[in-house]
């Protein structure tokens, strides 16, 4: 769907258009916030705050400067940072999510490989939880939101080169935290 007319209508004061934009972006915003914060209640609060700010201030949005989703991501990242500043974030929830399983892929590993994978995924997500907020932002924006480096820079409020450095640093830290054994297993496992 072409969202440009919808945004223009909302900028003109049309509440129905604003509601449609809310419906389109609520899931994406919530999941991004969840990726950044790791806590469902905080993510919901941040998503509500980001969408409220974006829609009530939609007259500030300039389509020639960025796409609407990039603008909304920027607000979401900013609100997540505010949230984090006010609260020490838990490091457990991401690890719990792994047990939710994958609805899309149908892997059929043997029991040993299955156990190893569970352990590995737990380690990986725990390592993600250990990253600093900015490095975690880089990981989530690149690998979940599929942002380009340019978009990452815009969203995180830094230069393209800084965005690149943060992502590389995040990978480096994950490598160190996971250690050689787990990484070798990652590279050689053939179940997936």
């Amino acid at each position: 769907m072409d969202e440009v007319p919808l945004i223009r209508r909302a900028q003109g004061g049309d509440e129905r258009a604003a509601r449609e934009l809310f419906d389109i972006y609520q899931l994406r915003t919530y999941r991004l916030a969840l990726g950044l914060l790791g806590d469902t209640a905080d993510a919901e609060e941040v998503a509500q705050a980001a969408l409220t700010y974006a829609l009530l201030n939609i007259h500030r949005y300039k389509s020639e400067l960025s796409s609407f989703s990039t603008w909304l991501h920027t607000i979401t990242v900013s609100r997540s940072r505010d949230k984090r500043r006010r609260k020490i974030l838990p490091s457990i929830p991401l690890t719990q999510w792994v047990s939710m399983g994958n609805q899309i892929r149908d892997h059929t590993p043997g029991p040993e490989a299955h156990l190893m994978r569970r352990e590995m995924e737990g380690g990986l997500v725990a390592a993600l939880d250990q990253l600093s907020p900015k490095l975690r932002e880089a990981i989530v924006l690149r690998f979940y939101a599929d942002c380009t480096y340019k978009e990452m820079g815009e969203i995180m409020g830094c230069s393209l080169n800084t965005a690149r450095s943060r992502l590389r640093l995040a990978i480096e830290k994950l490598r160190i935290q996971l250690g050689d054994t787990q990484l070798r297993w990652l590279a050689t496992e053939t179940i997936r």
Partner: peptide, 8 residues
């Protein structure tokens, strides 16, 4: 896996 299954 984690985020695509999450619902607000």
């Amino acid at each position: 896996q984690t985020l695509d299954n999450a619902q607000p």
